[in-house]
Write a protein that binds this DNA or RNA. Structure first.
Lengths: 207, 207
DNA sequence: ACAATATTGAAACATCTGTGCTAAAAAAGA
DNA sequence: TCTTTTTTAGCACAGATGTTTCAATATTGT
């Protein structure tokens, strides 16, 4: 029997190369040849693990989406496992900590968010990425929804806010902050966005 | 002297073709040949009015950006020219009317917003579009800032909100709503986004 | 050592891209 | 009508892309 290279590892290594290329030079430069070069592989090798470019892109998209949401879900489950803090400030802090996993606040999460945005926009016209985009949307919707439940359940909430409405607004805030940091990182700093997110969450509790 | 075709009209006609292509098939398909075909022109003709593809894209970007902001500024100046309504509901309605010019709520504004988003993301890696993207950001920042001034000046505002902070948040809401409608028009309807925007504005006045 | 087969490498093909260059067509002044 | 100059059209080139095809390499079980 021949050499057995763990196919999963190999595919993820190629996906990493895709992320690097998209992050630094944009989706247009994520060609098979560029990806192969970035991963130090031959074009034939890449095509041995992925039948199509479409399959490669779908895999990379889903891998990226999973990375982001796993980060958020880890923090979320840690939040849900403990009793909620009684003070509003602490509660806001906890919830913001979860949601910040969805923002490009530096390090790995920054490149992930950029790549995710590129994939999302690409999925608008590349039909074979449509399902992955839908799955991504559902995943972030679930995260935001669960965080919001924690907030609104803590009888600290003022007035009668409809959870669905506030989820819609909170998702908009998150997407907007994310978009701005991706497109104009010089203008939208992590500290600024972080603070804006916290202010928004606080405004859901106090007036 | 030869035939004199109004160069401005011609350039805008070509830009229209660019918008159509980007809106329907994405930035990647906005090649010179596709643009020429879409505009019923020969490749040589397009190149007669634009030296580069870079120049064409820059012109199209700025034309698109101008369309969006002119729509908003028209409504804004009409708002600023009259005394502010005393009732909170009417004030919110007026301000929302201005800001809705920045959202893809159907008709021409929908395609404009989609195209604008594609250009913005493209400008992240295409350096020759960087300046146009910056100018666009400044323009929407100015619009949002002026609308917010109207709101906060109307001694209806509750608590002590810092205008800069609220501008940041409002821009995020607008960008987020816009992004979602562009990427998932089936999930984010105009009515929904419109309502969310109004709720956000109302929350700046009442608790 | 040998054979089987996953893995790699490379060449070729058709298509598309931006750009440079040249020449035809067309229209308005003389 | 003739001339001038914009406008249009088309060819050609070099480069890049996805895909197909086929041969060479390398590694593991026997």
């Amino acid at each position: 029997m021949p050499k057995i290279v763990d196919a999963f590892d190999r595919r993820e290594l190629v996906a990493q190369a895709v992320f690097q290329l998209i992050g630094e030079r944009g989706m247009a430069h994520a060609s098979l040849r560029n990806v192969a070069a970035q991963a130090n592989l031959a074009l034939g090798s890449v095509r041995h693990y992925f039948d199509n470019q479409a399959e490669l892109m779908d895999f990379a998209f889903r891998t990226n989406s999973e990375r982001v949401h796993v980060r958020a879900l880890d923090r979320l489950e840690e939040l849900e496992s403990k009793p909620l803090p009684a003070q509003p400030e602490l509660l806001v802090e906890k919830c913001a900590g979860v949601l910040e996993a969805l923002l490009p606040l530096g390090g790995e999460s920054s490149r992930d968010a950029v790549v995710r945005m590129e994939f999302m926009l690409a999925a608008r016209t590349l039909v074979h990425l449509g399902q992955a985009a839908l799955d991504d949307y559902r995943a972030t919707g679930a995260v935001v929804g669960r965080v919001l439940m924690q907030l609104l359940a803590s009888d600290l909430v003022i007035g009668s806010r409809k959870p669905v409405d506030e989820a819609e607004r909170l998702i908009a805030v998150l997407d907007g902050l994310s978009l701005r940091m991706v497109l104009q990182p010089a203008w939208a700093t992590p500290e600024q966005s972080s603070a804006t997110l916290r202010r928004h969450l606080a405004s859901l509790l106090g007036p």
